[in-house]
Every structure is written in structure tokens, then in C-alpha cells.
Amino acid sequence: MDAQLRRGVLEICVLKALEKQDSYGYQIIKDVSPYVQISESTLYPILKRVCAAGYVTEYSVAHNGRLRRYYRLTEAGAARIGEFLREWEDIMRAYSFIKGEGR
């Protein structure tokens, strides 16, 4: 997959992983990795980027004698998922055309 496309898709996967409930780094990796390959090295910059863009906020909670950093999806983040899905519909139409479906 093209690196730029992969980065964009991963960003949305991370937002999606936070849609139902707040989550933390390792849990996000476990939730996303069955669908797209992701590691700590790719997740950390994505989390920084989505936080900077206002799609996600972060907070810490004490857990087993240490701090666990949680991430929460904002309204802007939820809107970004919707925007991505709308954009992707155009791509899916092109995909069907390329595959020769619907003729």
C-alpha cells in the first residue's frame, strides 16, 4: 500500500478504535492490528498527529502503580471518520469500475 494512503487509513483506524470507548496505546494496537498492520512506532506519531489536529484528547489514569495514558475521541474526530467514509465511497466506485463490476 502507498505510504501516504496507509498513513491516512491508519489514522482513521485509530480514531475508529476510540469511537466506542476511550482507550490506551497497547489496546489500540490490539484492536487495529487484526485489520491493518500497526506497531508502536507507527502508532505514536499518529496519536501525536490526531491530538494536535484536535481529533483526540489525552489524559492519564493511575493503574497498577503507574500512569496509563488514555485517548478520547472528540466531536471533530468523529466527524473526520464520517468525512473519510464519504470520500471512500468515491474511491469504491472507481474500484468497482477498475475491477469491471457493474457492467
Partner: peptide, 24 residues
């Protein structure tokens, strides 16, 4: 962040070596 991810793996039942091997 990496330290936290290792700690999470340890809580998941991995050894330190396994947790580190799972990272990049």
C-alpha cells in the same frame, strides 16, 4: 510511550524479553 507498551504486555502475561521482542 514505549515503556508503557512494554508494561501493558507484561500485564498481558508476556516476559520482558517477549514484550521487547514484540516491539520494533
Amino acid at each position: 510511550f514505549y515503556a508503557e507498551c512494554i508494561d501493558e504486555r507484561l500485564e498481558d502475561g508476556m516476559t520482558e524479553e517477549e514484550a521487547v521482542a514484540a516491539l520494533d
